[in-house]
Simulated assay, not measured.
Amino acid sequence: MTETQGPAHKKDMTRRRAVLAGGAAIIAAGVGAGVVASASADETTSSGTGKKSAGGQGEECYRLTSETTEGPYYIDADKIRKDITEDTEGIPMTLRLKVIDSDTCKPLKHAAVDIWHCDALGVYSGYESMSSGGPGGGGTPPSGAPTDAPTGVPTDAPTGTPPSGGPGGGGGGHTEPTDDKRYLRGTRLTDKHGYVEFKTIFPGWYQGRCVHIHTKVHVGGKMTDAGYEGGRTCHTGQFFFAESAVLDSAKVAPYSTSTTTRTTLTEDTIYDQSGVTGGLMKLSYRKNHMARGVVGSITMGVDPDETHDGTDL
């Protein structure tokens, strides 16, 4: 399934619940008056009937956080770090994530959380040569190019017929990196409270997809000199952003220089329109001063006993 295809039929998840992120969101200290909380001013933030968590922390529990396709541009967790910017230009963003067991609502400690996303102009590290003219280039992907192609006007759908098992295959396929760049990619372990934090930039957009960040949660493995190894992937998902925040980012350079047609949140075929359960983040930033920085937070409810590597949809 390519990344532009809609989510496949979801398995019955009534046994599982996901946490309502509003109860676990962390707002940056000292942000002050005039803060825009775009958690989802225009989106539903919960679904179903909640009940108190077994963890005893007063959080409201709902369904499992939605699983999505991995997409073609995942690179294994070999960059263990908090700051993934590598001086990439864009609006500074702090991601504050919490991972819980969706059955018990208890924090999931020592889980490895991967995140990766494109830069302000839609380019993914590791795949720069797939764009015409390099990073930020405005060319068209070559025929057969994979669908998350970072071209400045990349698409998530191949322009030609993909080879068997290649990009566009089941679960989005996987494309081998074309260079050794790794900006805007990183992995960290959750602490004993299930929290993990990353320093990055607000992602840009490319043709065919709304603004998003990819994520994976791994359990049962261990840290090595080469990165996180072993275990299994219990969650593959994506984070999304309220349309109002994306419009605010589009006023700031270099986002404002993009001429790429933007797909809105409601038009996207990966986001399932379920609010926080579907990966919609809570964002906080100073009104009319988004360029100074954004804090994004969400709680992911995962099933540590399952395997969801993005190819099982």
Rank of each mutant, 00 (worst) to 15 (best):
V295C: 02
V99M: 00
H218D: 10
A21Y: 00
S258D: 14
L108T: 01
G90A: 02
V153D: 10
S38V: 11
D272R: 13
V36F: 07
H212N: 11
R16I: 15
A39N: 04
D76I: 13
G186D: 04
K10H: 09
H289I: 14
G22Q: 12
G90Y: 00
M300E: 00
R262G: 09
P203L: 10
G194H: 08
P107I: 13
D42W: 06
D114R: 01
G171R: 03
D78W: 04
M290Y: 10
H308Q: 15
I26Q: 15
T45R: 13
K192N: 14
H308E: 09
G34A: 07
A28W: 07
R96V: 15
H218W: 03
T224P: 03
P163F: 07
K109L: 12
T104S: 15
E59F: 10
S46R: 04
V36L: 09
E3P: 13
K109Y: 00
F241Q: 06
C234S: 08
H235G: 00
D148W: 13
E229F: 09
Y255C: 08
L265D: 13
E267P: 05
H289M: 03
A33K: 15
D272F: 00
R182Y: 10
P107D: 09
M93N: 01
K216L: 11
A39M: 05
P142V: 04
M130V: 06
D305N: 02
A28P: 12
G166S: 11
T159N: 12
K109C: 15
Y73L: 07
G122P: 08
G165K: 10
R188M: 15
A28Q: 07
K222E: 10
Q5L: 00
